[in-house]
Computed example of a mutant assay.
Amino acid sequence: MKVFVVLALALASVSAGVLPQDTPVHPKDIQGVPVIQGRITNGKNAAENQFPYQVGLSFTGSSGSWWCGGSIISNTYVLTAAHCTSGASSVKMYYGSTTRTSPQLSHTVTSSSFQQHAKYNSKTLNNDISLIKTPSVSFSASINKIPLPAIASSYSTYAGQTAVASGWGLTSDSASAVTSKLQYADMKVIANSVCQQSYGSAVVTSDVICVASVDKVSTCSGDSGGPLALDGKLIGVTSFVSSKGCEKNYPAGFTRVTSYLDWIKTQSGVTA
C-alpha cells in the first residue's frame, strides 16, 4: 500500500509539473521509534509559561496509543491534526505543562468530541486538521489560548518570516527515550514552490506552510498536531516531515490555518 501511495503522489505531482524528491509522512508515523514520541529535534527548552497555548495529547485507539500536540484556541476547543484524531477512541489532554508529565490540569474526552475535517486525505495528507471539544478551562499564566490569524492575512505566504514550533519528546531520530521538557525552535518559512521540490505539488498545496530544516532542527514524531506560531498568532498545525527522518534537513510541513478559518468558525464558532 505504501508503494502505491508513493507512486500515486509522484504521478499527481508529475501531472502538475513538480516531481517530488522525497516522500512525506506524518511525524507520528515515522517507523522505529517508541509509542510515546515527540519533540522538536535539536531544539531548546521552553521557559515556564512560555507557551501557555500548548497542550499535550495522549490518544488511545484500537491500534495502540500515540502522543500528539495541540493548541488551545478557546476555553472549549483545541486545534490539532486530523492524523492525530484518526482512529482514536479517546484522548487525555495535558494543560499548562512545561514538564510533560506534570500538567496543571488534565481532561479526558472520547472520540464523540472530535471534529475531524471531513475531507482529510491520508494519502495526499491534505486537510490535516481537527478540532477537539473540551470541558471549559479557565485561563491563567500557564493555560491560555493563542489567537487565530486575521482573515486579512489569508493572502500572506509568510515566506521569509521566522515562526516558532513547539512540542515534547525525542531528541533525535535515533533517540530511545523522550525528554520531559517542552521544546521549541525558531524556523524560517519557505515558499511552497521550494517545498514542492521535495514533496511535490499534490502534497504541498496552497493549504500548506513549509519551514526550512537547518542544522538538524525540525519537528518530529509526537510534535504532530502542535502549533506553529508567528507574532503571537497560530499560523500552522504540524503535519508532515521527510520519511527519511527528522534530522535530514528536509522541509517540515504544516496545515495552513488561514485556509481553514471558515471551517473552524463553522465547526466551533471560534474566530480571530
Rank of each mutant, 00 (worst) to 15 (best):
A12L: 15
R256G: 00
V217G: 02
Y53W: 07
G43D: 10
S58W: 12
S74G: 09
T108Y: 09
Y77C: 04
M1R: 10
V208R: 01
S122K: 15
S102V: 09
A46Y: 02
F59G: 03
S13K: 13
T171Y: 07
G56N: 07
N249W: 07
Q116N: 05
K233R: 13
V208H: 03
E247P: 04
K44Q: 15
N144D: 10
L131C: 06
A12W: 14
N126Q: 15
G17M: 12
W66T: 01
S176N: 13
Y120A: 06
L182I: 01
I209P: 02
T205G: 07
N42L: 11
R100T: 00
T101Q: 14
C195A: 15
G96D: 08
D173E: 11
L170K: 10
S65I: 02
S242W: 03
I40L: 12
W66A: 03
A81D: 08
A272W: 08
H117M: 05
T85G: 09
V164Q: 09
Y250V: 00
S102M: 12
W168Y: 14
S176Y: 04
D231V: 01
G32P: 05
V91S: 08
A177M: 05
N42F: 11
T85L: 13
A272V: 00
N45R: 13
Y94T: 04
T80A: 08
P103T: 01
W168G: 00
S172D: 13
V78E: 10
Y77I: 01
T85Q: 10
Y155L: 06
